[in-house]
Simulated scan of single mutants.
Amino acid sequence: MYWDHWSLNRVLILFVGLAFLLIGIQVTLYHYRQNFHNKAMWMPVIASPIFFAAGVILVWYNAAWLHALFIALMWVGAVAGLIGLYFHVRGVGIRVGGFALRNFMTGPPVILPMVFTAIAVLGLIAAYWKGM
């Protein structure tokens, strides 16, 4: 399969790949700051560059197997973000004072795992788009 033009789903897949590069850098900085005290912290750090590479390669080389791999990776990313949300909410709750506003402000960023999931879901929308 070859790309004849830059369709919307092709642009979105490129955006998703680049977004995973950027969010991967941010996640790495946050988790490094916490010394990777939980092994689950490695998942988005390792997965983000893989998601980036898969998205960018798919934009330039639209092979069926690569398309299927991209879809599988985006499903993994969506689930990983939800798991991260659980860990981040739990991390806020175990701080002194529980779910107080100050703990949401200084504790693990609760929004970041949801952004990870949202980007993966956008990748799924682009991959399942009819124009592909």
Rank of each mutant, 00 (worst) to 15 (best):
A63V: 08
H37C: 03
I25N: 02
N9F: 01
L18D: 03
V79T: 15
L66Y: 04
I111K: 07
R33V: 03
H67M: 04
F15D: 00
F99V: 13
Y128V: 02
G107K: 02
V121T: 04
N9G: 03
L69D: 05
A19K: 03
I94V: 13
L8N: 14
N103M: 11
I57S: 07
V92I: 13
A126C: 06
I125C: 12
L21P: 02
I57R: 09
H88Q: 15
F52H: 03
Y61M: 13
V45Q: 03
P44W: 09
V92Q: 04
A63N: 07
I125W: 12
L8K: 15
H31M: 10
A72M: 14
R102I: 14
G77D: 05
P49D: 07
I71Y: 02
P108Y: 05
V89R: 09
L82D: 01
G84Y: 02
Y61L: 14
K130W: 08
I25S: 08
A118T: 06
I13M: 10
F20P: 00
L122A: 11
L112I: 12
L18P: 00
Y32G: 05
F116V: 06
I50M: 08
F51Y: 13
P49V: 11
V27H: 10
A80R: 02
G131L: 03
Q34K: 13
G24W: 11
R33I: 07
I94Y: 08
A68K: 03
Y32D: 08
Y61N: 14
G93K: 01
A40T: 13
L101K: 13
L18H: 01
L29M: 13
F116L: 09
L8D: 12
N35G: 09
A127C: 04
A19V: 11
Y30H: 10
I23K: 01
W42T: 11
L29R: 15
H31N: 15
L14E: 04
V56K: 00
L82Q: 08
M132G: 10
I94W: 04
G55I: 04
A63C: 05
I119F: 14
A100H: 07
I125Q: 02
M132I: 11
N38G: 03
R102E: 15
I23N: 01
R102W: 05
F70K: 00
G98L: 03
P108I: 00
P108K: 08
L14A: 15
F51R: 06
R10E: 02
P109C: 07
V16L: 04
V59Q: 00
F36M: 12
P109S: 12
A127S: 15
G81P: 03
M74A: 11
N62A: 11
A118Q: 01
V76W: 09
N62W: 08
I83K: 06
L18A: 13
I125S: 06
L124D: 12
I50P: 03
Y61Q: 14
